[in-house]
Simulated assay, not measured.
Amino acid sequence: MRTYTIALAGNPNTGKSTLFNTLTGLRQHTGNWAGKTVLMAEGEFTYGKSAFRMIDLPGTYSLYSNSADEEVARDYIIFEQPDVTIVVLDATSLERNLNLALQVLEMTSRVVVCVNLIDEAKKRGVQIDLQIISQRLGVPCVAISARNKIGIDTLMEQVEKVASGEISPEPVQIPYSKEIEEKVKELQPIIAQTLGTRFPTRWIALRLLDGDESLLKSLRERMQEPTVPVQRERIGHEQTICH
């Protein structure tokens, strides 16, 4: 039986942990992330002909390394490269929740968007067009109620298809200003030459331009090799990444 790894991402209070508990049941354990005081929850379950290992990432509003929780979630998606990242959204607060979803889509294409609390949305008269959301984001989008176990099978069908490669999502690429796009194009070949093609060069370029010191530190620790200079245009002096 093939085993796939799933990362579960989402804002706080979206029902992410409820979904985690629904899928993993008693087959889960908790601890701390290495070197962090941030809680880590991991569980296992089977669906169809596949086995899954699920990591419940800390609930965050962004992945811009402004806190230990954000760094943990960011580093797991980038460095561990799960087979699928499920981004859990609150159906009653889609606009706010989509910010995190778009950030994840810049980091990995293997994403399934899960719109949770769909029953609460219906009670409030909120109508959600999953097909339009899926088309605009470029990834599968499924509506569920984790608490009432509605839509779980549909969710897992999409997750299994993405994990196995039956579906290859093509996430929307967020356009930035002309100046930023030009700098990204300059940086991408340098990043690819330095780090290879394993990591998303466009996303790393954007983070370098934003002066993300935490990401640089994580890259150095992962690569454990000498550093090389990369120009950080935002503040006008050299920055470094791992070679």
Score class of each variant (00 low, 15 high):
Ile180Ala: 08
Arg222Leu: 11
Gly165Met: 09
Asp69Phe: 01
Asn32Val: 03
Ser218Val: 00
Val113Glu: 00
Glu44Asn: 12
Val88Leu: 15
Lys178Ser: 13
Glu166Lys: 15
Glu225Ser: 14
Ile174His: 14
Gly25Lys: 10
Thr22Val: 09
Leu195Gly: 11
Ala34Lys: 08
Ser17His: 03
Asn97Pro: 07
Glu160Val: 10
Asn148Thr: 05
Trp203Tyr: 15
Pro82Phe: 01
Leu89Pro: 07
Lys36Arg: 15
Ile191Trp: 04
Arg147His: 10
Glu166Gly: 02
His243Trp: 04
Arg198Gly: 12
Cys141Gly: 00
Val142Trp: 03
Asp90Ala: 04
Ile118Pro: 01
Ile191Lys: 03
Val162Asn: 12
Gln28Val: 06
Thr240Asp: 00
Met1Leu: 07
Lys122Ala: 15
Gln239Gly: 14
Pro171Glu: 09
Gln135Lys: 09
Cys114Phe: 06
Ile128Gln: 06
Leu206Tyr: 01
Phe20Trp: 07
Arg147Thr: 08
Asp56Phe: 02
Tyr176Asn: 11
Phe199Tyr: 15
Leu105Thr: 11
Gln135Ser: 09
Ser62Ala: 14
Glu42His: 12
Val112Asp: 03
Asn21Ile: 07
Glu71Thr: 03
Leu102Pro: 00
Val113Trp: 02
Pro140Ser: 05
Asn148Lys: 13
Leu208Phe: 05
Arg234Ile: 10
Ala68Tyr: 01
Ile77Cys: 02
Ala41Val: 01
Asn97Phe: 10
Ala121Lys: 07
His29Arg: 14
Leu215His: 08
Asp69Gly: 01
Leu219His: 10
Ser109Ile: 00
Val228Thr: 15
Gly151Cys: 11
Leu39Ala: 06
Pro169His: 13
Glu213Ser: 05
Glu186Thr: 10
Glu166Asn: 13
Ser145Ala: 06
Pro140Asn: 06
Ala41Ile: 01
Tyr4Asn: 07
Tyr76Arg: 04
Ile190Phe: 02
Thr30Tyr: 03
Lys149Asp: 09
Thr154Met: 11
Ile190Gly: 00
Glu42Ala: 05
Arg202Leu: 09
Thr108Gly: 01
Leu94Trp: 09
Asn13Ile: 09
Ile174Val: 15
Phe45Asp: 02
Lys123Ser: 13
Leu187Gly: 04
Glu42Gln: 14
Ile133Gly: 04
Gly48Ser: 04
Gln193Tyr: 10
Arg53Leu: 14
Ala68Val: 05
Gln103Cys: 03
Pro12Tyr: 08
Pro171Ser: 12
Val230Gln: 02
Ile174Pro: 08
Leu219Arg: 05
Pro140Ala: 05
Thr18Cys: 04
Arg53Phe: 12
Glu221Trp: 02
Glu182Ala: 11
Leu89Arg: 08
Gln131Met: 08
Tyr176Arg: 11
Met156Glu: 07
Ile152Lys: 06
Val84Asn: 02
Ile204Gln: 07
Asn13Ala: 11
Ala121Met: 06
Ile241Thr: 07
Asp90Cys: 06
Ile86Asp: 03
Leu206Ala: 02
Asp83Ile: 04
Ser93Val: 01
Leu26Gln: 14
His237Asp: 09
Val228Tyr: 09
Pro58Leu: 02
Gly138Gln: 00
Ser109Arg: 12
Cys141Val: 15
Tyr176Lys: 12
Ala34Met: 04
Leu23Asp: 02
Ile167Arg: 10
Val113Asp: 01
Glu181Gly: 04
Thr3Tyr: 00
Ala9Lys: 00
Lys122Met: 13
Thr60Gln: 00
Met107Ser: 00
Lys16Ser: 10
Leu219Lys: 05
Thr22Ala: 13
Leu206Pro: 01
Leu89Trp: 09
Ala121Gly: 08
Thr227Arg: 09
